[in-house]
Amino acid sequence: MGGKVTCTLGEVKNRADFIVYWGGNPAECHPRHFTKYTLMQKSKFLPRGRKDRTVVLVDIRETKSAKAADHFLQVRPGKDFELLTILRALIKDQKVSEEQVAETGLSLEVLKDLIEKMKAAKFGVMFFGMGLSMTRGKHMNAAALLTLAAEMNAFTKFVAMPMRGHGNVTGADVIMRWQTGYPFGISLNRGYPRYNPGEFSTVDVLVRGDTDCAFIIGADPGATMPKPAIDHLAKVPTIVLDPHVTHTSRLSRVHITTAPAGIAAPGTGYRMDEVPMPLKPALQSPYPSDEEVVRRIRETIALRPDWMTNQPQMIEAQI
């Protein structure tokens, strides 16, 4: 079994002589990733910077990021899982058939060359983007890549990291984990946290029509979610907190304008490698912060009678 073998971005800057980007386009989506953290930095261990590093891009099309890479491997759409699994077999010298390789759109020769380079690296890193984790196979793809990176440690130092987008989504993950045990997809309706992505994840909840009031903050599902989900948001009372009047605001019952995080509201944000950063606002907003508004809503709710009474303090085991 694999796991998650990762590091902070400074380790990549200091040590990674072999860098793979898989299913991501950092040149356009994380523009400073190359210059600040990965390709261009010089370090004690890699004094020549870019010249000391080998960069591979794996994607279904040749994006702008390909220009920055030494090698571009074009995988056939939807075949990431197969390709990763073949690589896992190849590093262990297991047999893989020509047909299986051909299915991925790549040749055995290219893959063997890749494996050789991976094993020759002193410190390898694989970054993966939504092109891997949000396409056919989804979390199975991510798990396959994480496992490949873990298994590479039998040969050399290797790590992997998701290219998280969306500002402080990492902070939400981290906080929900320490407060509820789970990163997302949580139900608190029994008075304690339960986790079941697919059941408690938002798109599924909305499409099934399983919520009768939605509170949306720091996101605009009205612009991004499938239509049946958006239709349900429009049907139930929806409350939006956002610095702008968004698509979701327009279908909501209540919109509250708030100060933009990090620009006019102070606090903390987590980087994709879970390093917390202080946010220093440059502007003073005429609007309150999200923090203040949510606190006030919570305090207003707390004034009402508690709907959940006569519960035990604790249950010994969950059913």
Partner: peptide, 28 residues
């Protein structure tokens, strides 16, 4: 420890659970 929490959801599911009250947060 938070990395540990992330890696063990199967344990959170079977362990004792503290139910929230008006003045106290829930927890596992």
């Amino acid at each position: 420890i938070n990395f540990g929490r992330a890696r063990t959801p199967e344990d959170h599911r079977r362990t004792h659970a503290f139910i929230r009250s008006k003045t106290r947060r829930s927890g596992l």
